[in-house]
């Protein structure tokens, strides 16, 4: 009996290890993002991001901010500062879910600047600016941009077809969007869109 159990355990152990992360994937929060790229004269770029959360998630955050989750009153600067501490700063550890790949792999970012939050029609929006930790030159090589939470707890959806829009550029740039087949989210159920920025 024991021998049979031992005989069975190895493949089962392997299977268990493989299926273990399966238990932890579902979208629960939905957010729409709009990312504008601002390119400087030196070729470095900044990302101006706006994330809008769904009504329920917005209401939940407000409930922790205000005694009564009043979704009509605008956020005071004090409330925005508090929101940044409780529900934004921690995202720095996860690169704010931003993925920018250059020729030498993914880029790192400085901590976000210019954080602001506002309420509109019961939905909470964050706006902030991201800047690469090391200055880049967009003319040298194309860059791929995308935003996703690889655990898929939060489903990040691009506002438009592309993941980025060019707000300002001294150069001639083009955008091309594709599904990133190299990034299977939820075991390949979702391939996030990435947009390639090519400038000359």
């Amino acid at each position: 009996m024991l021998a049979r159990i031992m005989h069975n355990s190895l493949p089962i152990l392997l299977f268990t290890l493989l299926t273990a992360p399966l238990a932890r994937a579902h979208p629960h929060v939905w957010a729409v993002y709009q990312t504008d790229v601002v390119i400087g004269a030196d070729g470095n770029f900044k990302l101006h991001e706006a994330w809008t959360f769904d009504e329920a998630f917005s209401s939940m955050l407000l409930g922790d901010l205000r005694p009564k989750a009043d979704i009509k009153k605008p956020l005071s600067s004090k409330e925005q500062a508090r929101l940044k501490v409780i529900a934004f700063d921690n995202l720095a550890r996860y690169g704010y879910f931003n993925v920018v790949r250059g020729p030498r792999g993914p880029l790192k970012f400085k901590p976000a600047s210019g954080f602001a939050a506002r309420l509109e029609k019961g939905k909470l929006s964050y706006t902030f600016v991201l800047e690469p930790a090391d200055p880049q030159d967009v003319r040298k090589a194309p860059l791929d941009f995308g935003i996703w939470d690889e655990t898929f707890y939060i489903a990040m959806q691009a506002a438009g077809d592309d993941t980025i829009a060019i707000r300002q550029s001294p150069f001639k740039c083009t955008l091309a969007t594709r599904e990133d087949k190299g990034t299977p989210l939820l075991y390949g159920m979702v391939f996030p869109p990435v947009t390639r920025l090519t400038c000359r």
């Binding site: 550890r93 690169g95 704010y96």
Partner: peptide, 12 residues
């Protein structure tokens, strides 16, 4: 720090 999240290994 503000690192980029690396893609999860696609075991299954």
């Amino acid at each position: 720090g503000a690192a980029h999240p690396v893609e999860p290994p696609s075991a299954v």
